[in-house]
Amino acid sequence: MSEWLDARMRDEIDDQVAEAFDAYLADRLAEPGPLRASLAWGRSPAVVLGTVGLGALATAQASTGGAVVYWIWGAIAVIDLAWLRAARRS
């Protein structure tokens, strides 16, 4: 019987965490910011999200770590900032 209660409690906690995360994301999307502004200008955030996704894959594949990972994420930051600034000027 205690296992059933534990599983039920876990499910309830998972649901509460998911609801809180959804509310947090909704609040964050309502706040002004570069990604929100790019959506208002009709530009897709796909470039930023794509570079972050590729960076995560490249980081996972980097065998040496350290300097390689820093260069990867530095390049991503430069690309994303340039794209967001170009979006702001449009």
Rank of each mutant, 00 (worst) to 15 (best):
Q61E: 11
A46S: 14
A67H: 09
A75T: 13
A77M: 10
V78R: 01
G55F: 05
G65S: 03
A77F: 11
A86G: 13
W73F: 07
G33N: 04
A23L: 10
A18M: 09
A86T: 03
A23R: 08
A7I: 09
P45T: 04
D14E: 15
A7N: 10
D15K: 13
F21G: 00
L84R: 05
W4F: 15
D6M: 11
L39C: 07
T51I: 01
A20P: 00
D27N: 05
L25S: 02
L25N: 02
A23F: 02
D14Y: 07
R36E: 14
A18L: 12
D11T: 11
I79K: 01
S38Q: 12
R10N: 15
S38K: 02
L25K: 07
I79M: 05
A37L: 11
V68M: 06
I76V: 15
M9S: 13
A67W: 09
Q16T: 08
V48K: 01
A37G: 01
L54I: 04
R89P: 00
Q61K: 05
E31Q: 13
W71N: 03
A56F: 09
A62M: 02
G66V: 02
I13R: 15
A75F: 11
V68E: 12
D11H: 10
V69T: 15
A30G: 10
R28V: 13
W4S: 10
G33D: 06
L39R: 14
A62F: 00
E12T: 13
L5I: 12
T59D: 08
R85Q: 03
R8E: 12
Y70D: 15
V17T: 10
A87Q: 09
W73C: 03
Q61C: 09
A40K: 08
G65W: 07
L39N: 04
R28F: 07
W73G: 03
P45C: 08
D22R: 12
L54N: 08
A67T: 14
R8F: 10
